[in-house]
Design a protein around this nucleic acid. Sequence first.
DNA 1: TTGAAAGCGCTAACAT
DNA 2: ATGTTAGCGCTTTCAA
Lengths: 390, 390
Amino acid sequence: MVQGTPANLKTSTPIVAFLSAIVCKRLQKIFMNQPPNRPRKKTQAVTIVDVARESGVSYSTVSRVLSGFEHVSDDAREKVLAAADRLGYVVNVQARSLAGGRSKVVGVLVPALDNGYILEVARGIDEELNKEGYSLMLYTTHQHAGKETQFVNTVANGLCDGLLLVVPIVPDHYLAALQDRMFPYILVDQYDATHKSNTVYATNWQGAYDATTHLISLGHRRIGIITGRMDLASGVERLEGYKAAIADHNIPLDDDLIYSGDFFQPTGYTGGHHLLGLPTPPTAIFASNDLMAFGVLQAAGERGVRVPDDVSVIGFDDIPHSVMVHPRLTTIHQPLDQMGRVSVRMLLDLIEQPDKPPRNLTLATRLILRESTSAPRMMSPEGVKQTHNS
Amino acid sequence: MVQGTPANLKTSTPIVAFLSAIVCKRLQKIFMNQPPNRPRKKTQAVTIVDVARESGVSYSTVSRVLSGFEHVSDDAREKVLAAADRLGYVVNVQARSLAGGRSKVVGVLVPALDNGYILEVARGIDEELNKEGYSLMLYTTHQHAGKETQFVNTVANGLCDGLLLVVPIVPDHYLAALQDRMFPYILVDQYDATHKSNTVYATNWQGAYDATTHLISLGHRRIGIITGRMDLASGVERLEGYKAAIADHNIPLDDDLIYSGDFFQPTGYTGGHHLLGLPTPPTAIFASNDLMAFGVLQAAGERGVRVPDDVSVIGFDDIPHSVMVHPRLTTIHQPLDQMGRVSVRMLLDLIEQPDKPPRNLTLATRLILRESTSAPRMMSPEGVKQTHNS
DNA sequence: TTGAAAGCGCTAACAT
DNA sequence: ATGTTAGCGCTTTCAA
C-alpha cells in the first residue's frame, strides 16, 4: 500500500497537485494511508513495464524497440529483446491500436461462408495474412444490409488496419465512408466505377471468350449460356465474352439460349432444365460459374441427358468441387487463392503508403479441360447414339 | 490546505521535486500559454465525449447508457440514445476492451479453411455470433505449431472475449494457459481428457454404430472401414462403434478390413484402392468421414467397381458436397452448423458467468439414406450382375 | 539515444 | 442517479 503511493503521485502532474484543493484532499487521503481501493479488472500478464524493469531501460525505449524504431542503441535493443523473450511478452494490440499504432488485424468482408468461390479467395487471404503476422477479422454481410454503416465505422475505428472487400456489389456509401476516412481497402473481384479504389480482378471477359471458343472449336454451334448476376461486373463481362466469341465465329446470337442466372446453384438447375427443354436444345452450355454448372449437371441427370455425350457443360471459377462432380467439370480456372494473396499484398502496401495512387491488378484465367465437354453428337464419328426430344 | 501540501509532499516522497527545474519550466510554459503542441494521430469520428456534449449529460452517464447499465434516469437515457443516434456514434471496441469492458469479439481457432466439415461448423458459429452482435476473429493454425503460445497470449490479452476451439488435438499447454487465465473457451467436437473444459460434441460412437448396422441390415457381412485419425477422439469412437456393431451381429472382426486413415480425402482414395484390391474385397465400406468416402468413390470409379451395385459406401458428417457426388452419398448426419451455434451459446454463457461448472453437450447424429448403399450383389434378387476379381 | 509524460476512448470505482 | 477521475497498455511527442 504505502509503496504504491509514490507511484500514484508520480502519475499526476505536480502542477495540478500544487494548485488544486481537490487534489489536496486526495493527497491527505493518501497520506492517511487510505488510497482509493481500485482493484484492476483485467491485467495483462506481462506489459512493457515489466519488460522495462527486467531490461533496466525505460518504458518508452522498450516501446521503441518493439515497434521496430530505428534510433535505439544496439545494446538497449538486445537487452529489451532478451527480456521480452524471457518474460514471454506479447504486445497488446488493443492498447497499441488505441494509442495510434497498428492493430495488425485485417478485416475481410464476405457475403457468406457457404460459397466455394469465396472460400478459395479467403484461403489465399488467410495464408498471406498469416505469413505477414496479421490476424483475420471475418465479417459476413448476410442479409443485414442495414448494418453497413455501423460495420464500416467499427472497422475504421481502428480495430482493423485495413479492409478486404470480397463482396459482390459494394454500396457506394461504403466506399464513400472508407474514402473519406482514408481507410485502406481493396476491392477483390469487384469493379469500381469511380476508379478510386485499389482492385484485384480476373480476366472475366477473356475467360468467357475462351470457354465459348473452346465449345465452338469442338464443333458446337448451338451454345446456351446461363449468365451471372447482371449487376455484377463479372456477370456482365462473362456474358460479353460469350457474345464476342459467338460473333467472332459468325454464329447468330439466339436470345432463347441466354438464361438469366445469379451465380447460385439453383438457377443453374432451373436454367439447365429450361435450356435442355427447349424445342431445339443447345448442344453445349456455358454456365457463368461452377456452382451453376453443377446445377446444369443435376438437371441433365434428371432428364436423362448425358454429359458430355448429349450436352457439353463448361463452368467458370474452377472451385475445388469441380473435380469432384461427375463428370469432372471442364471450366475456366480463376486463380482465386492467388487473388486473395495478391489483394493482401496490395493492402499491406497501401497501409504503409496510404497515398499511393490506386492500382488495378488483373489476373489471368485459363481453360481447364476435363470431362464435361466433347464434340456434339451429330458431329461425332460414331454418329447419333441416342435420340431425345425434337 | 494549500499551504500544507508542500510540506506533506516534501516529507513523504521525493516527488518533492515539484520544485525542480523541470516542473518549473513546465509551469512557465503553461502560464506563458505555450501548451505542448501535441497533434493527435488517429481520432475517432465521434466519441462518447461528443455524445455527452450533444446530449448535455456527463461523459460517464453516456458510458452507462451505452453499456446498458441500469441506474440511469429514463430521461438521460433517452437524450443520450437520441444524441448517439444523431451523431452516428459507434463504440470503439479497442478502448472499451482496454478499459476492462467486453470487446464483443470471439476468436475461432480452426486448422484450415479447406475442409467442408470445418466450414459447416464455422457457418453455424458465424450466424449465431452475428445474431448476438459479436464479431468473429478467425485464426487458422496452419502448420505454425510454434506460434501457439503467442496466439493464446494475444487472444487472452483481451482482443477476444472468448475462444472457440474447433481444432482437432488441442495441445495441453493451450488449455493450461487458457485455464490459468480463466479465459472462456469451448472445445468443439473435441474430447477433453481433463474434464475441465466446456465441450460440444456429437455421438460419434452411436453414429458409427448406426452406419455399420445399416450396412449389416442391408445384408453385408464383409464390411471394410477406413478409420479417422486415431489421436482424435472422434476417430477412435467411430472405429469403436463399427467394432461394436460388427460384434453385436456376430460378424468376426477382420483386421484386413480396417484401413488406417486420417480424415483426408487422399487416404480415402488409397484406402479404397487397398480394400477393393483385396483378394476378397469387402462388399461395403464405411469411411469415417465424407471426405474419405469421396476418395473411396473415386477409387471405385477408377477400378470399374460400381457404387452401390458392386460396393456400398457410407460416410460420416453429411457435409454439403455429399449430395453433389455421384452417387449421392449415404452418410451419418452430424449437426455441424448446430454444433457451431450451440458452442456459441455456451461460450456467451460462459463469458457472462465464468465460474460456471464445465458442461459437456452431446448432439445426436442420424443416418441419411441416399444412393451409395444397397444390398450386396450376391444377395440381390437379380443375382450376380457382373463379376470382378477373385 | 533516451526518459518523461500526455493522451488514445472507454469503464468503473468513487464521491456526491 | 450522476459527475469526477484514475487508469487499461501503448505510441509518440517533447525535452534533455
